[in-house]
């Protein structure tokens, strides 16, 4: 499990508190249609039985062509600013965003990669271990949508199949009229379905859908983390007392670590 203990900082700001499950952007291309938390998850949250998820973070990697607005999207969400000047990202940038989902603290670690071809070698070294892959394209430039396939393929190569949530995000929504946007979305939704990704249209300039989108990302990543944790623990439980040797240690204080040799000498 990729996890690291976070310093317990100040409380989460109010607009990062997620109590009800954020909705999809379009039902035509979304990862799940449910509008509330998974039963097991909300039960676990109520009983504060989420294990170590509260101390966990999920890694989010944002990829896409240069100048589609990856950095702008992240800066709009994390710092609530929009800079008109284009500044190419060199290598990778990094933001940490703290949430409180269903009463449990949770963090997203957002890696903003460079879109320029010449920085791809460095950027691709950061794709590994992602729980969420956000592939961004420019709604006004359909060529960038075409390239998302390649970006996604590169990012998936560094991750184990089936471990990541995929999002396809169209940026610069403010530059399009309603009709033009709808037209672009049809194409994007088709591709999203092909990729098995969830589709969103956003604008970093106006801030439209930006918060809703990241809340959705956080909620899905959080739910997945909790479910995975519950599953791991429940799969660990039946082994206890199964007659196999190691499970004799059930009553020892280091029960949770029973999968590891917990001799003090080995650390």
């Amino acid at each position: 499990m990729r996890s690291s203990v976070m310093p317990l900082g100040p409380t989460v700001s109010r607009d990062r508190i997620i109590t009800s499950f954020p909705k999809w952007y379009t039902p035509a291309a979304c990862l799940q249609l449910r509008e509330h938390f998974h039963g097991q998850v909300s039960a676990a949250c109520q009983h504060r039985n989420t294990g170590t998820v509260g101390l966990k973070l999920s890694k989010v990697v944002v990829v896409g062509d240069l100048y589609v607005g990856k950095t702008s999207l992240i800066h709009r969400f994390c710092k609530n600013v929009f800079d008109r000047d284009y500044k190419a990202t060199i290598g990778v940038d990094f933001e940490m965003e703290r949430f409180e989902v269903a009463g449990i603290p949770f963090s997203l670690q957002i890696w903003d990669t460079a879109g320029q071809e010449k920085f791809k070698c460095i950027a691709s070294a950061y794709y590994r271990g992602a729980q969420v892959i956000i592939t961004a394209f420019d709604l006004t430039d359909m060529q960038t949508l075409e390239h998302t396939r390649q970006w996604l393929e590169d990012a998936l190569r560094e991750n184990e199949p089936g471990t990541c949530f995929l999002f396809l995000v169209g940026t610069k929504k403010d530059l399009l009229s309603g009709a033009a946007c709808e037209q672009a979305e049809v194409e994007a939704v088709r591709l999203a379905n092909e990729m098995q990704a969830e589709y969103w249209s956003v604008s970093a300039k106006t801030g439209e859908n930006v918060k809703a989108f990241f809340s959705r990302v956080a909620a899905l990543a959080f739910e997945h983390s909790v479910l995975q944790d519950l599953e791991r623990r429940s799969s660990a439980r039946p082994q206890v007392g199964d007659g196999d040797i190691i499970r004799m240690e059930e009553h020892l204080p280091e029960t949770q670590d029973s999968k590891r040799p917990s001799s003090p000498g080995c650390c």
Partner: peptide
């Protein structure tokens, strides 16, 4: 270069 170092750590981890 921190980016270079971190990239290399990631590659070594893989």
């Amino acid at each position: 270069s921190i980016d270079c170092l971190c990239a290399m750590i990631n590659l070594a981890t893989t």
